[in-house]
Design a protein around this nucleic acid. Structure first.
Lengths: 226, 226
DNA sequence: ATCTGATAGATAGCGACACTATCCGCTATC
DNA sequence: GATAGCGGATAGTGTCGCTATCTATCAGAT
């Protein structure tokens, strides 16, 4: 298959495919002559994975390169690949380091030891949790830590579900990719479900009338006020 | 309080505060003379909320303007404000519309009616769910729909927790803001917890040795390969 | 044999986004 | 009355994910 067909089959433009190759997300096609290369099904599959991680998972191009390098590393234990993927899902890196931040980190450390979770305390996920709790504390919602365990129960349930799902995979190479897909896309699934459950529960509780909120405008990014 | 003190107390630079005012995120200070304005505690609180929605929630500036306009609208029923906030949390808008997308939308519609969730089928959350499921199907993980109900159970549990938490709020104006905070920051909390639970469960199952993954580099966005 | 259209590879540019820098004339305060 | 800070405005910056354009070159139809 040449690049044009790869483009047609995946809906990704030819210049974009070239860009992904340049950025190391996609291996180059096999050169059959100085300016002709052929691409196989692996390329097609990889390209779809890239688009999923990008569009649905919200990962950055450089992060996808990291994750895919981990996926392709045959030496690597499965659970560290999963960690590599999970570590790319959080927010920004820097944040001011005030009293709330320190208290939140302490709360997270306490929570982790209480739960007995096997996790390194300085992992990006733990840092994200601390950042979120610190932000809540700054907004007068320090009491949110009290519901952490309810959240954690739900998180554990989802993690068990995911693991069982990944275990279905027969081949090990499918397991690695499946774990990444489950980690990243599962996040999007859970997030959308939570939002819908939220709206459902809130509508039942506070208002019986249908939604008043306008659907998103046809195309543009929301620039209106409502 | 003048703008300099507001800046010092929140850690947001003066030009950035001015930028937020220009973009309609923050009401302007009350002018005491043609070029002096005074800011109050409400401004400080609002500014912290803006930073939380931006840094932790990952909302865009224009989206935050929408959400805050909804929060400030006294006429608006609480649950529609919550919907407005939830609707800003998803992914992009456009996507190619192939067979997988259609099947995913049908699966979502089926799922919603089965669950009996009060939600409009064309809501951004439902669209996000359909997009995630379509991406999974394209990657050969169409079977993921089979675990949707497990995910939904967890989502419902979280939604119940959130609602109970918001209900603690005594004043109604605090409820509105609390609901937004809970919706947006709760997402970050749940996401980080899921990632940690994931790593924990996977480490217990597949590898007993500690994490091999390097922590994030001190500052830069991940540009390394590992 | 030649013409058309696709291809590899390289470089430069674009649009969205969240700021950031600079300037102006004014003002509070020491 | 000097100096630091202020409100308001405009232009510029850095990052990100592409996109446009260019130069050869090559495959396949005519």
């Amino acid at each position: 298959m040449r690049i044009g067909e790869l483009s047609r089959r995946t809906g990704v433009s030819v210049p974009t495919i070239k860009y992904y190759v340049r950025e190391g997300l996609l291996p180059p096609g096999e050169l059959t002559s100085p300016n002709q290369a052929s691409y196989g099904e692996a390329h097609e599959r990889r390209l779809r994975l890239i688009r999923a991680l990008l569009d649905v998972g919200g990962l950055k191009v450089a992060e996808i390169a990291d994750v895919l390098a981990a996926v392709d590393d045959r030496e690597r234990p499965l659970h560290t690949v999963l960690g590599a993927a999970a570590d790319r899902l959080g927010g920004a890196d820097a944040e001011d380091d005030d009293a709330e931040a320190a208290a939140a980190r302490a709360a997270v450390a306490d929570f982790l030891s209480r739960r007995g979770w096997v996790t390194y305390e300085s992992s990006p996920a733990a840092a994200d949790l601390a950042r979120a709790l610190a932000a809540m504390a700054r907004l007068g919602h320090g009491a949110f830590v009290e519901v952490l365990d309810d959240y954690a129960d739900a998180a554990e349930q989802v993690a068990r579900t995911d693991l069982a799902y990944v275990d279905r995979q027969v081949a090990v190479e499918d397991m690695v990719e499946g774990a990444v897909i489950g980690t990243v896309l599962g996040e999007a699934v859970l997030s959308s479900l939570r939002r819908m459950a939220h709206v459902d529960a809130s509508a039942r509780r506070y208002g019986a009338d249908g939604p008043r909120e306008r659907k998103r405008p046809p195309h543009g990014h929301a620039a209106h006020r409502e």
